[in-house]
């Protein structure tokens, strides 16, 4: 490419990146890719890239033609644009079953990134009640829906399985949990269980770890892998393999839309 054409090409590449980054942020599609803490950086970068793109076009090359932008070849130009645009088009903004299975399921809270053992719980006062605002006040984290089901996340039940006090708050209670369907390949002796999965993210989807709890249904159900389902049923924590495992004895399993925040943080 000639000098001036290279300048236009460089400006074009920056514009493509600026538009794509801004699009991801403005459309909120970015929420399916990055932890909220990182999203603003992408937005700022999109704006800066657009400004740089315009600035390249508005500034006079003159002297800078000697040592400013080097000539851009066709291959780098294509490499800088085609994969980004193709991935933007092809990416479903969530992982399929293949990647999730390849990463292995976290079914023990101790294996969760960033997990630290809970601090000693607050003790009841002289009247036997728990001081408001302490960790032992279940109303702080147990929210019920209109039908009286505790609306929980898969991760809550994983925590409960590993922590006796929290387990008492859930055990034999009716819960409603939303997640993605995956067949249970292990821990399923009667063939009537499936894994209810969510992705736990530290920075971006690339470091996502699938967390899973078991759902027991009667009769067994089969759905396309990674279908979003809402499960209602009774929380139980049978001892399996030497530790408490969270299992929902399902009353109903219905397909549902993906939640606005598909990740757990």
């Amino acid at each position: 490419m000639t000098g001036i054409l290279s300048r236009f090409a460089a400006s074009g590449v920056l514009m493509v990146w600026g538009i794509v980054l801004s699009y991801f942020y403005l459309s909120n599609r970015i929420a399916s890719y990055l932890h909220p803490a990182f999203q603003i950086y992408t937005a700022i970068s999109g704006g800066v890239l657009l400004l740089l793109s315009l600035a390249l076009l508005l500034t006079i090359p003159a002297e800078s033609a000697k040592h400013g932008l080097t000539r851009m070849e066709i291959f780098p130009f294509l490499l800088l644009t085609i994969p980004l645009l193709a991935a933007t088009k092809l990416s479903p903004s969530n992982f399929g079953a293949t990647a999730v299975m390849n990463r292995g399921m976290v079914d023990n809270i101790a294996d969760l990134p960033g997990f630290s053992p809970p601090l000693d719980p607050a003790l009841p006062n002289a009247e036997g009640s728990v001081k408001e605002g302490t960790m032992m006040d279940p109303s702080l984290y147990l929210k019920k829906n209109a039908d009286g089901y505790i609306v929980a996340e898969a991760i809550d039940l994983l925590y409960a399985a590993g922590e006796p006090t929290m387990r008492e708050d859930f055990e034999n209670k009716q819960v409603e949990v939303t997640g993605q369907f995956l067949p249970a390949l292990t821990g399923n002796p009667n063939g009537d269980r499936f894994n209810l999965t969510r992705l736990f993210v530290m920075c971006c989807a690339a470091d996502a770890r699938p967390v899973a709890i078991s759902v027991q249904t009667n009769p067994a159900i089969d759905l396309p892998k990674m279908t979003w389902v809402k499960v209602r049923g009774k929380a139980s924590f049978p001892v399996e393999g030497g530790r408490h495992m969270p299992v929902i004895i399902a009353e109903s399993t219905t397909e549902t839309d993906a939640p606005e925040e598909s990740f757990l943080y």
């Binding site: 990146w17 980054l21 991801f24 970015i30 890719y33 990055l34 990182f38 950086y41 992408t42 700022i44 970068s45 994969p83 980004l84 193709a86 991935a87 933007t88 092809l90 990416s91 479903p92 903004s93 969530n94 992982f95 399929g96 293949t98 990647a99 299975m101 390849n102 920075c203 971006c204 989807a205 690339a206």
Partner: peptide, 22 residues
């Protein structure tokens, strides 16, 4: 080894979106 172009695109984009600002 089991490849899915959708999973690849998703992971690819997420690292790009995270890394480009830096």
């Amino acid at each position: 080894f089991s490849f899915s172009v959708q999973d690849f695109s998703y992971a690819f984009l997420s690292v790009l979106l995270e890394g480009v600002p830096f």
